[in-house]
């Protein structure tokens, strides 16, 4: 994945090794979060931070694939296309949920987005700034379903109304039954398909 370099301005000093959002998140994951003794690690990202987060997880995938309980990405700009990390797209499908603006009538609707590789939950607000507020309750209900769950399990999770990764999957057509019947595994990766 590409890394965007932020050119230094007259007022800002660039910290060596943390020259971009991607490098900043990668640094914090590697040097701070990985040393935490917590058994349960949940991430909430916002906008470009979601890309930086998932990019960092893909770079340190062996470290994080069995440690992260769930990720919530609010108004995310991430994608799973272009990553050549074994198991990463399937991991994203199982553990990441996007939270987006929507019309009030679509509140609670879950839609699978192939480029982003995960389900998206409609928050029912058409105001961008309110997405965070509207997403908090469903995010923590989602996290509650993952609390204490076996993170190493590759079995498909049973459908749960508070876990959007188990719901949906509007827009996939026939792929829906494939995913529900066979679980989420790499053989169903969408990275080579057209949308």
């Amino acid at each position: 994945m590409a890394t965007i370099h932020c050119p230094p301005s007259g007022e800002l000093a660039i910290i060596p090794g943390i020259e971009s959002p991607e490098k900043h998140v990668a640094y914090v994951l590697k040097h701070v979060v990985s040393r935490a003794k917590s058994n349960e690690i949940f991430f909430i990202g916002h906008q470009y931070g979601c890309h930086a987060l998932l990019n960092s997880i893909s770079e340190q995938f062996d470290t994080w694939k069995d440690r992260v309980s769930a990720c919530a990405c609010i108004e995310s700009s991430h994608t799973v296309l272009g990553y050549n990390v074994d198991g990463f797209p399937a991991w994203v499908r199982q553990n990441v949920v996007g939270y987006v603006m929507s019309s009030p009538e679509e509140r609670g609707k879950t839609t699978y987005m192939r480029p982003q590789g995960c389900n998206f939950f409609s928050t029912g607000t058409i105001e961008f700034d309110h997405t965070v507020i509207e997403a908090m309750d469903p995010i923590f209900r989602f996290f509650a379903t993952r609390h204490g769950a076996n993170k190493r399990s590759v079995e498909p999770r049973p459908i749960h109304p508070d876990d959007p990764t188990t719901l949906t999957l509007e827009g996939l057509g026939d792929d829906v039954s494939v995913m529900l019947d066979q679980g989420f595994n790499d053989s169903n990766d969408a990275s080579g398909d057209t949308w």
Binding site: A13, G17, Y27, V28, H31, V32
Partner: peptide
Amino acid sequence: IPVGLDATDSVSPQ
């Protein structure tokens, strides 16, 4: 951050 920076160091980018 960076981790390990001297607490009295106010010059280095941080």
